Measured scan of single mutants.
Amino acid sequence: MATVKFKYKGEEKEVDISKIKKVWRVGKMISFTWDEGGGKTGRGAVSEKDAPKELLQMLEKQ
């Protein structure tokens, strides 16, 4: 499965696309949330040019 790689608060992170729940556009950035388990929700953002095609497809479906 595809993953999204991004930096959050200076830390490199990687999230499996299948865990992503919500995707939206903020200017030229793609923001998203995912389920971290245990009732926690993670947040992240990646530039439109660095976003994997699967993430962009999720954005178009909404």
Rank of each mutant, 00 (worst) to 15 (best):
V46Q: 02
I30R: 00
T33Y: 05
A51C: 14
L55N: 00
Q57Y: 10
K9M: 11
V46Y: 01
V4Q: 00
I20Y: 00
E14T: 11
I17A: 04
E60G: 02
S18P: 07
L59D: 02
G27S: 05
E36F: 07
F32K: 00
E48R: 04
K7N: 12
I20Q: 00
W24Y: 05
W34H: 08
K61Q: 08
S31V: 10
I17D: 01
A45I: 11
V46L: 07
D35N: 12
V23Q: 02
S31D: 15
E48H: 04
K19Y: 15
G37V: 15
G27L: 04
Y8T: 05
I20G: 00
K22P: 01
L55S: 00
R25N: 07
K13S: 03
E11A: 07
M58L: 10
K28A: 09
A51P: 04
S47H: 14
W34C: 02
K28S: 06
K28Q: 10
S47G: 13
A51W: 01
K53D: 05
K9Q: 07
W34E: 00
E11T: 09
L56I: 11
P52T: 06
T33H: 12
F32I: 08
M58P: 01
Q57H: 06
K13R: 11
G27W: 02
K61R: 03
E14M: 05
A45V: 06
S47P: 10
S47E: 14
F6L: 03
V26T: 06
E54Q: 05
E11I: 08
K53A: 10
K13N: 03
K13I: 14
W24R: 03
K22L: 10
G42A: 12
S18W: 05
E48A: 05
G42C: 14
K5I: 06
K7E: 12
K7R: 08
D35H: 03
K13D: 01
A45F: 05
G10M: 03
P52S: 06
A45K: 15
D50E: 08
E11W: 06
E54S: 09
I20M: 12
G10E: 08
S31A: 03
R43C: 12
I30L: 06
L59N: 02
K40W: 07
K9E: 13
F6N: 00
A51T: 09
G42P: 06
L55I: 03
A45P: 01
D35C: 10
R25M: 14
K9Y: 09
E36N: 05
M58K: 04
E14Q: 04
T33F: 05
K13T: 07
R43V: 10
D50G: 04
E60Y: 04
L59I: 05
V15P: 00
E54M: 07
A51S: 05
K61F: 12
D16Y: 05
G44V: 12
Q57A: 05
E36M: 12
F6A: 02
F6W: 04
K5N: 03
G44Q: 10
V15R: 01
E54A: 12
K28D: 14
M1K: 05
A2R: 06
T33D: 14
K22M: 09
A2D: 05
V4C: 02
S47T: 06
Q57V: 06
V23F: 03
K28N: 11
F6D: 01
T41R: 08
R25K: 10
W24G: 11
V15W: 00
T3L: 07
F6V: 06
V23S: 04
G42R: 10
E14K: 03
G27A: 13
M58F: 05
T41Y: 09
I30V: 12
K21V: 14
G44S: 13
I20E: 00
W34N: 01
R43W: 02
K28I: 04
I30Q: 00
S18Q: 11
V26F: 03
E14G: 02
K61L: 13
I17N: 02
G42F: 14
F32S: 01
G27K: 08
I20P: 00
K9A: 12
W24M: 15
W34L: 02
D16H: 14
K13Q: 11
E36I: 04
G42Q: 14
K22D: 03
K40I: 15
A2W: 02
E60F: 02
V46A: 09
S31N: 10
G39S: 15
R43I: 05
Q57T: 11
A45G: 11
Q57L: 14
A45E: 15
P52W: 01
K9G: 15
L59C: 10
R43N: 15
G42N: 13
E36L: 04
T41N: 13
A2S: 05
K61A: 05
V4F: 04
T3D: 01
Q57P: 01
K49W: 09
K40F: 14
E54R: 11
Q57I: 05
E54K: 07
K40H: 12
G10H: 06
K13A: 05
K21T: 10
V15E: 02
D16E: 10
K49E: 06
D50P: 02
G44N: 04
T41I: 11
K61I: 12
T33N: 14
V23A: 11
Y8Q: 06
A2H: 09
A51R: 01
A45H: 12
T33E: 15
Y8I: 03
S31Q: 12
K49S: 08
K53H: 04
E12W: 09
M29T: 07
S18K: 09
R43Q: 13
K53M: 11
E48C: 14
T41W: 13
V23G: 03
V15Y: 01
P52C: 09
V15S: 01
K5P: 01
K7G: 06
T3K: 08
T3A: 03
T3W: 02
I17R: 03
M58W: 08
G10W: 02
K40L: 08
M58C: 07
K49Q: 15
D50I: 07
K9C: 15
R25S: 12
L56G: 03
W34Y: 09
D16C: 08
K53S: 07
V23K: 01
D16I: 06
A45Q: 10
T41G: 14
T41S: 14
Q57F: 08
V26A: 11
Q62V: 05
S47C: 14
V26Y: 09
P52D: 04
D35R: 03
D50S: 12
G39D: 14
G42S: 13
K40V: 13
G37Q: 12
A2E: 11
G39T: 12
E36Y: 09
Q57E: 04
K61Y: 11
K5M: 03
M58Q: 07
L59G: 02
K40A: 15
E48T: 05
K7A: 07
G27Q: 13
E48V: 08
A51I: 09
K61D: 13
D50A: 13
I17C: 11
